[in-house]
Write a protein that binds this DNA or RNA. Structure first.
Lengths: 124, 124
DNA sequence: ACAAGTACGCGACAATTGTCGCACGATGTC
DNA sequence: GACATCGTGCGACAATTGTCGCGTACTTGT
């Protein structure tokens, strides 16, 4: 049950959930609205659509709706990168890890994990 | 007068024009339709929109409309990659050239040129 | 001169994406 | 209890993208 790829505006929300595993719509909004200039409605709607796509899930926490990412950070990033490489640059083989150094959202360990994914997903 | 970024379906057409500087709608179609499964109409419409965006230009060649890319291959690819890196991986600095090795559409010289672009566009 | 094939201008439609607003019910406050 | 809030469900709209088809004018073989 592969989930769809996040659209550009969905990505920031996903990232927020990757850094904090559980957030309410309001919290998500406060984190992201600043740089995006969205209204709370936009944030909520985007969240809705992300549920439809299977990117996140909702859970009732003390009567409040909190969201959780349901796709893995590393594999999602790996897949997106792989697709980009294929579609835009037409690189089929494995990408070198060096491509990711400098990323502000990936730790050392994550970098290694990512690398592993890129090598594996090879066949696909 | 910066031109917009090509959408996914526009990219293959652009690539075709980068490899052969002048092509008619029909020729473009024959090159691309195969893998995309489009009808000629789709190809033409996509071409139309690319003109609107300033990605390509049309010229009357012996009474036939031929298309030419009006955006540069290297800088376009560099910009797209840069954007991807920033938006998805949050890498701001220059990307290492190694990220592009393996690309089937870039020659050695182009790789070097690309590298230069990535370093320059820094400020932006 | 006519039929068949092309090229081209345009309009059309559904799906996806970006953004909101409104109405309603639950909650907390004086 | 009346009111101001907040969280939610949902509907709405414009722009972009992916795909076509139609009608018309033009070229060309027989």
């Amino acid at each position: 049950m592969e989930s769809m790829q996040p659209s550009p505006s969905e990505l920031p929300l996903l990232k927020a959930l990757w850094s904090k595993p559980q957030l309410s719509a309001r919290e998500l909004h406060d984190q992201v609205a600043g740089e995006l200039g969205w209204s709370l409605s936009s944030t909520r709607k985007t969240l809705d659509r992300m549920i439809d796509k299977g990117l996140i899930t909702v859970h009732d926490q003390h009567g409040l709706r909190v969201y959780r990412a349901s796709v893995d950070k590393i594999s999602t990033l790996a897949e997106m990168t792989r697709q980009f490489a294929r579609a835009v640059l037409e690189i089929d083989g494995p990408l070198p890890a060096s491509s990711f150094t400098g990323s502000k959202i990936l730790s050392h360990e994550e970098l290694e994990e990512l690398q592993k994914f890129l090598d594996e997903e090879e066949g696909k």
